[in-house]
């Protein structure tokens, strides 16, 4: 929106006499741009693009780690990918996890933000509480939940106090998936909540006043004013949350190791198993390529969707 302004050449440099003619203010500024972005660009090249390229390269090989064999096999790994009997289940678990996580995370974040946006004493205390898991080490948080979710753990202990008998959370296929999702949502929902809260507080109050006069109810106001006004935030948080949901690893490793059965074996975990446990780096690389493709497609779709429902994209 304001980017164009930086183009205007400042007068000062232009009046310096001893410069060769090609060393214009414009070129000077270009150089500055490259120098400023340089470390990040270099980092992207070395730590992102190069390893990504290597990963593609590996995916066309059979790599026997123990014997030190590395053999070009063409598209063999990709054929195996298409025929892999475990893959549909893995993709199903991935979809269930991601959909559950994104839906629960965004809706809970929005509800919490709306509650905290009310004029109430003590909202700062609650804001701190809801945000605090973000500051707890991920592995510590997950280890604690593993204790709590055991059959004889804290959650069922709490339930037994009120006379209910809880299931064996991490041993049932549905409850294990639900548990992994909820643990992850509780850990990170505070971040999205804070972003939503900021967006809510940025909605001009006049809009609400005008609509109150028009006699609109609370729900109509929310749907007609609040949602459109905070839609850019929803887009950004949903992109970050979707991408994040496809990267969950430590939580699954600590809580369920992909079980019971293979019910919580999501794509990243399957990839990790193949590469680091089954020592099959070639196939692991192929799964990485698949994961990357999925993330890319989802992000592009979300980005395209913004035209439809994000109202004030300028």
């Amino acid at each position: 929106m304001t980017e164009a302004d930086t183009e205007t050449a400042p007068g000062r440099e232009a009046s310096r006499p001893a410069r060769p003619s090609w060393w214009t203010a414009r070129r000077r500024d270009n150089l500055a741009g490259f120098l400023f972005a340089g470390p990040q660009l270099a980092g992207t090249l070395v730590f992102v693009l190069l390893p990504l390229g290597l990963m593609f390269w590996y995916s066309f090989h059979e790599w026997n780690v123990l014997a030190g064999g590395f053999r070009f096999t063409g598209a063999e790994n990709y054929e195996r990918l298409v025929q892999d009997p475990a893959l549909p289940g893995v993709l199903g678990a991935t979809a269930a996890f991601s959909v559950g996580l994104v839906a629960l995370n965004l809706s809970l974040a929005l509800v919490l933000a709306i509650l905290l946006d009310q004029k109430l004493r003590g909202t700062i205390l609650f804001r701190t509480i809801f945000f605090s898991p973000v500051a707890v080490t991920l592995v510590a948080w997950t280890i604690v939940w593993r204790f709590l979710l055991q059959d004889d753990g804290g959650i069922n202990g709490l339930l037994s106090v009120v006379g209910a008998e809880g299931p064996n959370w991490l041993r049932g296929e549905t409850t294990a998936m639900a548990a992994v999702i909820v643990v992850q949502v509780l850990k990170n929902v505070g971040l999205n909540m804070v972003l939503f809260l900021a967006a809510l507080q940025g909605v001009p109050k006049e809009l609400y006043e005008a609509s109150t006069i028009d006699g609109a109810g609370a729900w109509t106001r929310f749907r007609r004013i609040t949602m459109p006004m905070i839609s850019p935030t929803i887009l950004l948080t949903s992109i970050i949350t979707v991408v994040g949901s496809l990267q969950v690893f430590a939580q699954i490793d600590v809580l369920t190791k992909g079980g019971p059965g293979t019910s919580t074996t999501v794509l990243v975990y399957y990839l990790y198993q193949n590469a680091f446990q089954f020592h099959d780096f070639g196939y692991g690389a192929t799964l990485s390529v698949l994961l990357f493709a999925i993330v890319l497609v989802l992000t592009v779709i979300q980005w395209q969707m913004r035209r439809k429902w994000v109202v004030h994209e300028d």
């Binding site: 041993r171 079980g259 019971p260 059965g261 198993q273 089954f278 020592h279």
Partner: peptide, 19 residues
Amino acid sequence: TGQAQLDQAVRAALDPLWT
């Protein structure tokens, strides 16, 4: 041979037994 993969497969297939 291929113990890691077998190990994982047996563990997953045995899970339904423990109900």
